[in-house]
Amino acid sequence: MSPETRFVLLLALFLVVIVLCVKPLGGYIADIMEGRPNFASRLGGRFEALIYRICGIEPGREMAWSEYAIALLLFNILGAFLVYGLLRLQAFLPLNPQKFPGVGGDTAFNTAVSFITNTNWQSYSAESTLGYLAQMAGLAVQNFLSAATGIAVAIALIRGFARHGTKTIGNFWVDLTRCTLYLLLPLSLILALVLAAQGVVQNFAGYKDAATIETLTYQNPKSDAAGHPLVDAAGNPVTEAATTGTQTLPMGPVASQEAIKELGTNGGGFFNANSAHPYENPTAVTGILETFAMFVIAFALTYTFGRMVGDARQGWVLLITMLILFVPLVLLAFQAEQHGNPVFARDSVDQIASAAQAGGNMEGKETRFGIAASALWAAVATGTSTGAVNSAHDSLMPLGGFVPMFLMQLAEVAPGGVGTGIYSILMFAVLGVFIAGLMIGRTPEYLGKKIETLEMKLASVFILTTPFVVLIGTAVAVLTEAGKAGIGNPGAHGFSEILYAFTSAGNNNGSAFGGLTATSVFYNVSIGLTMFIGRYWPIMAALAIAGSLAQKKRVPVTEGTMPTHGPLFVALLLGSILLIGVLTYVPALALGPIVEHLMLPAGH
């Protein structure tokens, strides 16, 4: 069986399993978020009520959109202060067996914003920077809360479509509590136990020094007193020979963090190598489960949408649209990687898959996973807003690297992050029906709600904010010395590294082309700002639309109403998403991965 056939079978099986989970999980999410009694509320109802009593929350009190938005914003910014404090003060806090010092101010700022925004961009090497308290109480807690925040926004927007003649869209505190208590915590607990059973580390022990079988001699890079790498006159790193007979094995509460990292589409690794590390992702079973966990909630929310608006077909249409966007791009990524590097082919390097080798481009890939599992993971982690990695994205072929970048640039709708995917694609649906309304000369409607000037202004704020911060951030970085100083590779690939970084930050993904050194104050601050604006400004616009739609009366369906549950609407939605994505980003992509691809045959 050829690698291509194996990959198609893997992808098909994977997607079938995901789609089979959509209805039961999506229905369950609708039940818990609408407060319908089920086994979960019977088990956890008393605890939920206790949380409300302790926090002084009136669960029956509904919020207008602006109150909902301010509650969300305030809660998230307080989370940022908490994470910042934990990182800065970790030297004085418990559960830090390696005695790591406090994290630098700019890195703490970047990390705090990164984790409250569900981005999990990591400008630090986790296992050599963070103690266990910072990882658990800081980062893992935000993994739950940022995921719950995204789902809460999605549910509030869906209520906007489902309700009519009301000013309220729900209660943020109740949505946050129910989502965390009944969805994220139970699924994470189950997944963490399975991961731990498979060998993912879960302990509070200090790092272990193991004696290696052979004594290793290596070149150790030298640093100055400030910790900056030393380079010689030619710009090459200054090194000194060193030998070692031991290897340090990092430990920690990994499984519990790994579960929510994937389920909440967060992506921040306990270790720097993320899911390529054998303690995060030790077996084929964990690889498949982690890939599955990234997708399952994001897709299930399409059914939740259909259920809550009273027409399941509306949800299936969104799911089909997401799949039509995702499948060709993941096939392109696989093909680009399996095809290998034409420069190597010219030098007669054998890149054909055989029983003895994976073939293709194996640079930057974990040999345990090979090309198929790496390409699938890269597309899943960027089609969702997870950003976890099991291979080095910087080492992907130009078209292989184009795919993750473009999946993010499509505004993370294939299927997007938990919550963010569904509310983002609904914004494109609003745009799509408006364009269709202009074409046929009728007032646009979606799910019985008239889409008018106000909704279009708000949808424009939603859709344009992210490209604005991504492209402005990229432009500033390539025009300044501070920005150019981080580039690891010259030419088009260096531009790709910067474009990828701001694309990842603005779309709250978190993956990176690792060649970019983004640990400087410039990148920590600029990427921090990009992540914050890219997250909260669109959320505010989405909630404003929810408030506006909830107030509207439902328009009866007539013969002139455009159906939004058929192939025509799928085409319209695809057109809107691709039109915006392509028009916005192709000029920038042409300077990065596209020109890299075109230069390959010439040997560059």
């Binding site: 602006s66 914003l73 910014i77 101010g105 914003v113 604006i533 505010m540 616009a541 408030g547």
Partner: peptide, 30 residues
């Protein structure tokens, strides 16, 4: 240094809060 980064966080909150206010005004505009 901490004051600077905490101030940036407060500034980001303030600007986003102002956006909520502006969008609400937009909604209530005739």
């Amino acid at each position: 240094m901490d004051a600077l980064y905490l101030l940036i966080l407060v500034g980001l909150y303030a600007v986003t809060h102002a956006l909520v206010w502006a969008l609400d005004r937009l909604r209530n505009a005739p």
